[in-house]
Design a protein around this nucleic acid. Structure first.
Lengths: 218, 218
DNA sequence: ACGATCTATATTGTATACAAAATCGTTGAC
DNA sequence: GTCAACGATTTTGTATACAATATAGATCGT
């Protein structure tokens, strides 16, 4: 009863968390999940274990798994680290990017602009993802690219929310222009600084969002 | 037949890899490991999965797990990232460290000096570990501290080897002095720069070691 | 009536049984 | 004699069965 082998389950759960289908703090019952995906508990447990290792869920011994609670302060910490990693990618990219890297970056930024002008939030989301991934690649440090991609995935759920913030897309696009220019010109420190700011701003914006939300629900 | 629950197995395997008991590229047979630890395959599989997620072993579908092959170039990439993370820890520590953080740092450095003067390589290894961990803590970014600790663990096997290099301990100790001073004085950029260099040098030294080894075996 | 302890239930953790896939050895053809 | 294809064996992947622990409910005592 399954072609659902390996990484598929993990991705599915990851996506459900990213999409908000599984809310933070929610219990992840193995039997229920097993039934829902039509597999036994074993592969479910393996998927949960992987998600726990990457920090998306928390497993307490004999007490089951829950979607990881990431409070605002923890989230800020994560964005702080992400900013540093992206800054590093940018710095290395400025030094090491070759023709094909630049081509990919320019193409991604073109898509970003198109989506922005069409007011297509989802489209911008994906184009933005490609843009950043292109920077990771351009760093010419495969390990760094992997780490950055992992972090990116972990922050996905929170990033997604705050793209809806009014005017954010336009600002983001402008920031991309600056970053792209710095990388093209090989200006490592500027590229790093701009990228760091680009990410940190997202964290701060998210902080505002959370504060707002807390106010409304309180 | 077991109080070996949870993280114990993972730690044991991790340690075996770090100690070189399990060589890079070596196959990790589930049945054999199960017998060796006196447990069934299930917890072994869980441990391997976790190690795979952190990158210490590689699992190829239906083809079993092997200790991850880290070539010299890959290793350099990892040290490059580690250097950036440590640099970040240092920068934040210089800004945010409080009295207890400084106390821990000074104590760790005292132990380092004692071990160095006694020519105790193992002792220095552990004191050095405490010193760096103290910096992670002092960054006052819990997430960053976790990430840095994880990276540290991943590089453990390689770090250990190159501490034997002649004169490295003395140099390392001197570098610690500079780093400690910068953090105490709150000089964020100096702390960051010194720490980055401190780590990168290790990567380069290891590069020399590998080159030397390759020469001898070729 | 409130609280604590003991028991029943449910859920996680581990072991075993079974299925699917890959490896290795053998056999057969050219 | 070499290479390829087939089959036997080994090993991974999944399901189920069993054991251990935590949770919740009920009973008893104060």
């Amino acid at each position: 009863m399954s072609g659902k082998r390996g990484f598929v389950l993990r991705d599915a759960l990851e996506n459900d968390i990213a999409m908000g289908l599984l809310k933070a703090g929610e219990r992840l019952d193995e039997a229920t999940l097993a039934q829902r995906f039509g597999v036994s508990r074993t592969p479910i447990r393996e998927a949960l274990l992987q998600l726990a290792t990457t920090g998306l869920v928390e497993i307490r011994p004999h007490r089951g798994a829950v979607v990881a609670q990431v409070g605002p302060s923890r989230l800020m910490e994560m964005f702080e680290v992400m900013a540093e990693l992206e800054g590093m990618c940018g710095r290395l990219a400025a030094r090491r990017a070759d023709g094909s890297d630049i081509t990919a970056l320019v193409a991604a930024q073109r898509d970003c602009r198109a989506a922005a002008e069409a007011d297509d939030a989802d489209g911008y989301y994906y184009a933005n993802e490609r843009f950043h991934h292109a920077i990771y690649q351009a760093s010419r440090n495969g390990f760094l690219a992997e780490q950055a991609t992992l972090m990116h995935r972990r922050l996905k759920p929170y990033r997604r929310l705050q793209l809806r913030v009014r005017g954010r897309i336009r600002t983001s696009l402008a920031e991309h222009d600056g970053i792209l220019a710095a990388i093209e010109q090989g200006d490592a420190e500027v590229a790093s600084t701009l990228l760091k700011a680009h990410i940190i701003i997202q964290g701060e914006r998210f902080g505002d969002l959370v504060a707002n939300l807390a106010e409304h629900t309180a």
